[in-house]
Design a protein around this nucleic acid. Sequence first.
DNA 1: CTGAAAGCGCTTACAG
DNA 2: CTGAAAGCGCTTACAG
Lengths: 366, 366
Amino acid sequence: MQPARDGTSRTGSGAPTIYDVARAAGVSIASVSRVLNEARNTRPETRDKVIHAVAELGFAPDGAARALSGRLKEVVGVIERRPFPVGPGIDEDDAFADEAESLQFHDMINRGIEMAAQGRGFDILIRSVDVNDHDAGYRTLALARKSDGLILHDRLVDPEPLRKLAAQVPIVTLAGVATPETVNVSGDNASGMRALARHLLDDHGYRSIGYVGGYADSPDSLARHQTLAAEAAASGADFCSGPNWKGNYYAAGGALVVDRLMASGITMPRAIACANDQTALGVMNGLRRHGIDVPSRVAVTGFDDIAMARHLRCQLTTVRQPIRDLGATAFEVLYSMINGDEPAERDIVLPTRLVVRESCGCGMGA
Amino acid sequence: MQPARDGTSRTGSGAPTIYDVARAAGVSIASVSRVLNEARNTRPETRDKVIHAVAELGFAPDGAARALSGRLKEVVGVIERRPFPVGPGIDEDDAFADEAESLQFHDMINRGIEMAAQGRGFDILIRSVDVNDHDAGYRTLALARKSDGLILHDRLVDPEPLRKLAAQVPIVTLAGVATPETVNVSGDNASGMRALARHLLDDHGYRSIGYVGGYADSPDSLARHQTLAAEAAASGADFCSGPNWKGNYYAAGGALVVDRLMASGITMPRAIACANDQTALGVMNGLRRHGIDVPSRVAVTGFDDIAMARHLRCQLTTVRQPIRDLGATAFEVLYSMINGDEPAERDIVLPTRLVVRESCGCGMGA
DNA sequence: CTGAAAGCGCTTACAG
DNA sequence: CTGAAAGCGCTTACAG
């Protein structure tokens, strides 16, 4: 039984409903829905009346109602990490205060996701979670239930919860690890780091090298670490690592590593490769604060090639990741999964490329 | 009439419904809903059974269904500008290729919005629109219908469509202009620019000054322009402006302005204030390419104080905006509007502050 | 305290 | 080609 409709919308919100349109056009709601969705099987006259009423009222279907009646939500959830709690306690004059909130790599990736999503009529629902958010599990599920599928940055969800989640919605991870239930998309860490290592070890002939890592559990960082260590070993160069070398993908973390190393009295290696560009930035600043010149005394390199890399005092030698493509690829794979396709490949690796600038020591003589 | 329920979920998607939970717990769906929402008015025993079943099944209510039955969607839409079409045509070795896609100010603001949203259980639905997207009107409406309210960066929607949109959902603009139907949140452009102008004109004694703008219709840029022009006039200094001085908030735009000015044979002013930090970056690089040293021959300043500002070759003197607070404030106001409150203030202005570094010419003797 | 039922605003077979 | 009706998965008065 159709509810009585007075002149106004049912909801107080002021947005017209399909009933308003139907009444204005003098047709049934089914006809309105048809011209809006199928376009065919409607008499031109009916069609015109509906189109007109829709324009007149400024109608667009409610997303929730549409989704509930069998359609997609046309939303993908994106969850990223927000490691540093920020608040009034933070000193805004600290050189890295703001940077903590701007992991540019993530922002760029999200842009890639969003642009691909737009091509399919999707929007992206973003949430960042604190590393020590104990309620993360539930909040993640809640986000999943507002979306058609989920894209997870790195290793936000533990394997077991991830498995359960994947049973409910399609999931793609970025810079994580592929599982039987999920697809992963990442840059080619091994070949990128190998090219970088060879440049440092062979071209420059550095005989000692260190690696400042990202989050302890980051698959990206682990892969880069392993490759670098292997290349150093193959060249017979010294490789420095250990607890003092753990960073967190942020400049502040990189600077901290330098402070710790200096305090420990260690001899700095000739070159330091960092887990990402932002870490490299912090390491360079940290070294300079201790009076150590980059790159003449210590060479420093990054990973990612974010925009900032070429605008630093000392332009950063780094490994370029196809950041935008990483995001776009993640979306496209997820989109096909949402449409019921079985992914052909569960571990998608996109190529990376060494970008030589100044911080490795190149161009010093120029 | 309740539909027959077999052992599996109705939807193919694998996500359990409230019916699944009710069956598992041996109660009605009403009871499940009650313990999930009200918490009170349920016998402890019932409550336990439900809690248990929910945990067992990994249930969370479907966002669409929840929203449709009178609740909020707990989603706010955020629309930002994406001015540069990017695609295969772009040269990735261009110094500003990527930067075009990373307007860091927006990313930081969005982070502020998102963090405030999280405190209220909301997520943010992000969409960027192309300046020359003719279908923008409809897509904006569509986003609105997936959300409880909208936050619009700068002046994305024309006044008339904006009025119509505001009749359907609450709207807050960021760095736009307040209207009778919408609330605007922005930084204090006038006082920030005034402080900067005085520093340049009085402290440094520069007698000629130019302004490189942002988007032509950006209220922020307009306000900064006017204040600077007024201060220059008050000091009797020359003020340069005109069509050659139009930028677009991106580094590439700033560099282009410099090229145009050089080509036009104009004498560079002693100081150039830019619409934002990214523009300043481009201007500095452009000047250097033309052999003009910054700041000894031409001083350059920015606006915003994004993280990059202090990591440039020549640290940027700029006006700090409370970027995160801008976003958080926009959300909080929108949130109260969503809850039916009439906003107390339609034009919210947050304080800004001059940050003196090197690019203005300070510290050159040090 | 709890269940049966109505209703949210759509879409889509199902009849005509 | 078009309308009446069922159903999507919830929440919330309404009775008990």
